[in-house]
Nucleic acid binder design. Structure first.
Lengths: 364, 364
DNA sequence: TGCGTCACAGAAAACGTTTTCCTGGATCGG
DNA sequence: CCGATCCAGGAAAACGTTTTCTGTGACGCA
């Protein structure tokens, strides 16, 4: 364990606050007892005053609240949880260490929860059932009120044994067991959004280049492509080209669609299954001298900024609104915790189209 | 709030466990009281048996442990925290919603902590001081034992007011206040590693293309470049080219180094400040017909797989080992919580070089 | 035999809240 | 003037642990 150290001479910060407690006072933490004592009331009254419960003279309530403010009182969530049997705490288990999907979900979840006084435990389980077990146990000991299980493929469940667990659970971007509650982006509608946009811009021969069959996202996006085409009165341009989720496959697909071995009819638009494919395709088109968006419009899927902004021109792409997915999942979980009945099933939340230049519309 | 719903007919899972409690038993949770009762001992004895404390007959201890196993007893961390004044809980505050840096840090932290019974709260503060305040308050109420503050630039502090906070804190990939404890990758050593590798492969004219001055990482990596060159007895190839952290800049830099307006001497290697620059540079080299790695070796920084694997040939790059950074930060924070004295200052942890084909070595 | 020591186990206090129940006084209706 | 009602506020139990203190035999030793 060799590493460089950079020291500085300054003193360590954070000396404990001086002994200003009203009651004899133990540690640095301010308790409700001190607040009550300062306000000249009992602990019970102080609690009621702070929680807007019970009945009491307004001036008493204010006196207590003033004392709490003055002492910078923060109620101990542990003690509160112990008696109320609610920890105001959630567990987020994810096997998506790379974070492409989980991070926006986590951010949306965390944001929505903190406003409601709920905090989120992060558990990184690396597709390792043993590690999953340990984290699940930890969550139970910490008395979480519910669990969010977030994955990186909508058609794979997390490697978790949930039997014997009586906790509210929502599944995000992963497979759910029968009777479970799931949240995903609506891939089909998102794809339709993109294709309808292309059709609306006058494109008539809209091809589809996508990832490996076997990913549930592939048929969903394909269905959206077909549906939007049908609604626009257009035939599909051949069959979808299915390969990998990679730039390299996009590059090769461009050759199939526009190279010498392509048919006499060429697409005037390509809807790509993700942004990496779109990027590879556009790189190839540039090499072949095919103009984007003049000759061919291109739309991607994921709205991964790092790719969408790097293409020339910038890439129009479908955004899965994963932050909103995380948010909704959290809110629903809170409902379940509150005992509200929640319909089993998978909620597919709407995507939105982020228009940039690659599709030939005005967008930035 | 319009979204598609997919319902299924199955029943909701998780009926509460039947009434098998020994004592009258309230909710579904098994308490130590039930364990004690089942083992025929007092609560105090049960506690001692389970925590390997106190002295007692081995068979008593085993009887208690057997009962705990049989009932699937999980101690309530809240209750434990209340009396022990330790919550075995940490807060991770980050303003890196994009997750490029934070996610590996969080994964390393979470992994190291769960093995020690500590759980991590995730708080996404979006560079918004108000949100930061709310999250900080939440962490105090939840009685976290310590705080990890993770950023996305080593030279910027998080927008947090830490005054009046007497909690152990470590700063990760962000600026620390005087007297604070910081963890970062050792950019200088990482850069030196890369350049030394190039020199070892016989490259003599090693250029440096990097990000904007103003990022602390830029001078650090430059220093590493210079140091390794000096140690190899080589002169720097001109001055570093400083621009943006983008593919586009890498592309343009290639023009400056290898285009018609370049000097008579061309580099035989380029050390890039990050992988995006390296990628743009390699794309340009391909267009100009400059062979990689034959004519020019290229090394990047960050080892961002999505870029490093997408270049042709695959990109050799410096990995900042952020997971290990998160791990070490967590372990040190635990030490601080345990009252061990920890030297103020910034720890710079070693990077490692991931060798692929772009540098001309054997690697995969 | 008497006393100190020891091993084992239980009783009870403590942690910081919330909540239920109770009380003393004021108010009100008759 | 008397009882019923109501209000402000307090006492105490409860939540599930850990820890300290106490008690009780058994044993060793003088």
């Amino acid at each position: 364990m060799t590493h460089t150290m950079v020291l500085d001479g300054s003193e360590i910060a954070g000396d404990p606050p001086s002994e200003k407690d009203d009651a004899p006072g133990r540690t640095g933490r301010v308790t409700i007892r001190q607040v009550a004592s300062m306000a000249g009331v009992s602990v019970a009254t102080a609690s009621k005053a702070l929680n807007e419960r019970g009945s009491m003279m307004p001036q008493t309530r204010e006196r207590v609240q003033a004392a709490a403010r003055a002492l910078n009182f923060r109620p101990n969530a542990m003690a509160r949880a112990l008696v109320s049997q609610r920890s105001f705490t959630l567990g987020l288990l994810t096997n998506d260490t790379y974070g492409r999907f989980t991070l926006p979900v986590a951010a949306g979840l965390s944001e929505a929860m903190v406003d409601r006084g709920v905090s989120v435990f992060l558990c990184a389980i690396e597709d390792d059932p043993e590690r999953a077990r340990v984290n699940l146990d930890a969550m139970q000991e910490k008395c979480v009120d519910g669990l969010v299980l977030a994955g990186k493929r909508v058609d794979r469940a997390l490697p978790l044994d949930l039997s014997g667990l009586s906790l509210p659970i929502v599944h995000v971007y992963s497979a759910r067991p029968p009777g479970g509650i799931g949240f995903e982006p609506d891939d089909e509608a998102g794809a339709a959004l993109a294709v309808a946009h292309l059709a609306g811009l006058g494109r008539r021969r809209i091809a589809h280049v996508t990832g490996p069959v076997g990913f549930a996202a592939v048929p969903m996006r394909e269905t959206g492509w077909r549906r939007a085409l049908a609604e626009a009165g257009l035939p599909p341009f051949g069959e979808p080209l299915s390969g990998e989720w990679s730039e390299d496959f996009g590059f090769r697909a461009a050759g199939l669609l526009f190279g010498p071995e392509a048919g006499p009819e060429r697409p005037d638009a390509v809807f790509c299954g993700n942004d990496q494919i779109a990027r590879g395709l556009m790189d190839a088109l540039a090499l072949m001298g095919v103009g984007v968006p003049d000759e061919v419009a291109v739309v991607g899927f994921d709205n991964w900024e790092i790719f969408a902004q790097a293409t020339r021109p910038a890439l129009t792409s479908v955004d899965m609104a994963l932050k909103e997915v995380g948010r909704q999942a959290g809110l629903t979980l809170l409902d379940m915790i509150d005992g509200k009945r929640v319909e089993p099933g998978t909620r597919r939340l709407p995507c939105r189209l982020v228009v940039r230049r690659s599709c030939g519309a005005a967008g930035g």
